[in-house]
Design a protein around this nucleic acid. Structure first.
Lengths: 220, 220
DNA sequence: CTCCATGCGTTGAAAATTCAACAGACTTTC
DNA sequence: GAAAGTCTGTTGAATTTTCAACGCATGGAG
């Protein structure tokens, strides 16, 4: 488990657990670490959904693919965040999304049942972990609600501005980076890429926005 | 608490709790019941989000209102289902949605902290309830993911068909009722009402669909 | 250095959505 | 039973989005 401790301490799942107990706890949960290369899939739609993941390094995206090839990015996962926990906890037989590595990454995988069912050695961290999981899932719901707030806007322009304003607020600064390139941003906002580019240009000309690659600044 | 027991037994939150213990448990949780008339708001955007709700009768909708008046229906709540639990568990200071009674209804309200923090009399149902809440929230995440599946489609036609197919599958029959009138369906699908009506007509003419008010049948 | 792949902005035409307005069917109210 | 109000389907015009295609810039591989 080497030096993952730093990342794991930031993970909501382990809030309130003393670092010196973490290694033992991970053993008790049967946690294991796997590596994935860019574009490799961590879970594929239809997979049994028994495990939840914690991103240790790199980045991961939750995707839905249309039968006719439209990609929709449901969420972007940053290091120390959980993913697929809802599917694992809901005990659905098959996971309804694709989870892919959007860069090389390391992932910790834990079987959800090991969390929800107390281990035989009655490890006393379990209650804490379950409450942490509860709170983490609640926050995830908020993130998805936020995505709905963005994508429910009717025009490309409003979707984009709503998204950028949320990002700015979250960053506490009008100057910030987003985790998407243009195509990915379009897939998150659920709009056409070329239309999105056009809208960005327009906002730039109007002096509302400065940007370079994935670095944005809202000007007024 | 009169005859709510029947509804509450169907509520995921109380799965595995014997009915004879339910009344005591509700007391321990500080549960209370309130009534709301049609279009009354149960929670308003910005309210402190400490309580979660269980719908006992009637129906409730989770809404987001745009600054320019666009309404988006995030979810529809049926009796015995939970609502606002994610906001209460995430401990956000303010609830980011409106929760309104879409018909006269009765609602049970419980302070989330009473669930997550064991009561002083160490009531042994608490662990069970927390696990139930976890699973319930996971299922809610699936519902929202489903909404994203629907609204991420690019055309009114595809959104409508995807929604109806999901409804049919959920009902186990191609003949089913939906909990929305036309305007509400449009607000859920995030499309224009008149365009939705036009699309329904078209599908009818093509022989793909039969419908009357909120009663639908998929024909092929 | 050159070649190739990729990301991004631009454009114009086709297609779809939105918007406002209206009419018919039904309900509710008085 | 009449009147007022609500819900739905229709229509046509204005606006947007989508789609396909192209060129330029950048960056990596050989």
């Amino acid at each position: 488990m080497k030096n993952y401790i730093g990342i794991l301490r930031n993970c909501t799942l382990f809030q309130g657990i003393e670092p010196e107990n973490l290694t033992a706890l991970l053993g008790c949960l049967g946690a294991r670490v796997e590596r994935f290369g860019r574009d490799e899939s961590i879970f594929t739609e239809g997979d049994p959904s028994e495990e939840l993941g914690i991103l240790l390094s790199g980045s991961v995206q939750i995707l839905r693919m249309d039968y006719d090839g439209n990609r929709s990015i449901v969420a972007n996962v940053a290091p120390s965040q959980l993913f697929a926990e809802a599917f694992a906890c809901a005990r659905v037989p098959a996971i309804p999304v694709d989870v892919i590595a959007s860069s090389d990454c390391e992932v910790m995988l834990i079987n959800a049942v090991r969390i929800t069912h107390s281990c035989s050695n009655a490890c006393h961290f379990h209650n804490r972990i379950i409450l942490n999981l509860l709170q983490s899932m609640a926050k995830k719901t908020l993130m998805i609600t936020q995505k709905i707030e963005v994508t429910s806007k009717r025009s490309t322009r409003e979707k984009l501005l709503t998204y950028l304003q949320l990002r700015a607020r979250e960053n506490g600064s009008l100057d910030f980076f987003i985790p998407f390139d243009r195509q990915e941003l379009a897939d998150y906002l659920e709009v056409d890429r070329s239309g999105l580019s056009a809208e960005i240009s327009k906002l730039r000309k109007e002096g509302m926005l400065w940007c370079e690659k994935n670095h944005f600044r809202l000007l007024r």
